[in-house]
């Protein structure tokens, strides 16, 4: 499979995530769109790792392993991020009784 297919698929998923962040007001949906963008980047990293493997496996049989471990660490950090982020969202909901991000504009005052 040409690498371009994966590049374009990842770009499309990323653009859908960006569109979701820009068009929705529910803070949880915005957070989910950020997860979608993270996953599109992960997919592209894995595709590139296999591309690197195909090009360099003759000289280095472990070519591309680092990229997959990098994706693993991205998943670890994303799990920690979701944990803290959802705690903040629950806190926001408790104080404002809404999940509307426009409420947060009062933070600048």
């Amino acid at each position: 499979m040409p690498i371009e297919n994966y590049i374009f698929l990842s770009i499309a998923l990323f653009a859908i995530g960006v569109t979701g962040v820009l068009t929705r007001r529910n803070v949880i949906i915005i957070f989910m769109c950020i997860e979608l963008m993270l996953n599109s980047v992960n997919l592209l990293l894995v595709a590139f790792s296999k591309m690197h493997y195909l090009a360099n496996s003759a000289t280095n049989p472990a070519a591309g392993t680092e990229a997959q471990l990098f994706v693993f660490f991205i998943m670890v950090v994303a799990a920690a991020e979701v944990c803290v982020g959802l705690a903040i969202i629950v806190m926001l909901f408790r104080n404002t009784h809404s999940v509307d991000v426009n409420f947060l504009s009062r933070l600048k005052h």
């Binding site: 499979m1 040409p2 499309a12 653009a15 595709a47 296999k50 591309m51 493997y53 070519a63 591309g64």
Partner: peptide, 28 residues
């Protein structure tokens, strides 16, 4: 969002032709 998609696709349209390995290779 559509403009981002358009610009990224236009920028990466003429990338080098490379293949990814499917269904084989044991690094994963």
């Amino acid at each position: 969002g559509g403009s981002l998609l358009l610009i990224m696709v236009a920028a990466l349209r003429t990338t080098e032709k490379q293949m990814t390995e499917m269904g084989s290779g044991d690094i994963g």
